[in-house]
Computed example of a mutant assay.
Amino acid sequence: MRSLVIEDELQIGAYVGRLLGQLNGIVDTVATLADAEQALANFQYDLAIVDRMLPDGDALDLVKALTRLEKRPAIIMLTAKDGKEDIIDGLNSGADDYLSKPFEPQEFIARVRAMLRRPRLLAPATLSFGNVELNMGTNVASVADGMVLLRRREALILQALLIRRDRVVTRHDLIEAIYGFDDEIESNTLDAQVSRLRKKLNELGGNVEIRSMRGIGYILRMAQLR
């Protein structure tokens, strides 16, 4: 899951990002409508948390635009504008839920989880290939007769490879799948993470292999019998 937080109060934006991080996805945070539009032009989001009054305008028009997307994100407005008319305007513009500031973190997470249970956002709880199965809710991989708890980014790499098994996943696509755009990425970080994931699968007797395609990316396929 990839989420976009549109919030001009930096501390609140960071706090909301940390809360969403509990759901094992990628979180991007922006502070203006212009930056939000740039992010939406480059990434597909499953969830958008939208403050209403931003430095460059009212976010209602952005919410309306989001609802017209072919693959629109779920939208939760998180704002200090909590009057009855404000809530009606937000919901009529296409927001799926409306939460006023200040908010309780437990209620926020509960509303997000409820949103993600809606049919249009439901994804398979597990992905599998060969004798490898990934539980995307817990980041636990079952391999042959063993189990291993993967680091968050290892799980995201495995998820991307499982979804496109037997097809090359470019380095660019993998980086987009596992990093937010504010994350600092060293040149060899992805290779190191793939290497650790490969080692864990091999040690548990996985019958699939992650093969490097030099200069291009990686491919997950059934291991060759020896």
Rank of each mutant, 00 (worst) to 15 (best):
G21P: 01
G130E: 02
V148I: 12
M115C: 12
R214G: 11
M115E: 12
I157L: 15
R167N: 15
G90W: 03
N92A: 09
L40K: 00
Q44V: 15
L161F: 11
S100F: 06
V112S: 00
A177Y: 11
L10N: 09
I88A: 12
D86L: 04
A110R: 12
E107V: 14
L201M: 11
I75M: 08
E37Y: 00
A74T: 10
M147I: 15
L91K: 00
R165P: 05
K64L: 11
R68Q: 15
I49G: 00
L78V: 14
I163P: 09
A155I: 07
I216P: 01
T189F: 10
F181M: 12
I210Q: 05
E154S: 11
M53C: 13
N92Q: 12
R2H: 08
K81C: 14
K71Y: 14
A160F: 04
S187P: 07
F129Q: 01
V132F: 11
Q159D: 15
L19G: 01
E37N: 05
R164Y: 12
L121A: 15
L150T: 12
I75T: 12
Y179G: 03
R167Q: 15
M222L: 13
R117M: 08
G21D: 03
A177V: 13
A65I: 01
D8N: 08
R18F: 03
V16R: 00
K101A: 03
A125Q: 07
Q159L: 14
H172C: 14
M77T: 10
M222G: 15
L47W: 01
P124Q: 02
L66A: 04
I88R: 08
L54N: 05
A41H: 11
S212D: 11
A14K: 09
I175N: 13
L4H: 01
A74Q: 10
L78A: 08
D51W: 00
H172V: 15
E209T: 09
Q11P: 05
L99W: 06
A41P: 07
V30R: 06
K199R: 15
D182H: 14
L127Q: 10
Y15V: 14
L23Y: 00
K101C: 08
A14P: 02
A95K: 03
L162N: 01
P119H: 05
S212T: 15
M1R: 03
I163S: 13
G90Y: 00
R152M: 06
N131Q: 02
D35W: 02
L149M: 14
A110H: 10
V50D: 07
E186M: 10
D61F: 06
V168P: 00
A39C: 09
R72M: 07
Y179I: 13
I76H: 02
I185R: 05
I75F: 03
D86Y: 01
R68M: 15
I216R: 14
I26N: 02
R68D: 13
A65Y: 00
Y98T: 08
R151K: 14
A144T: 03
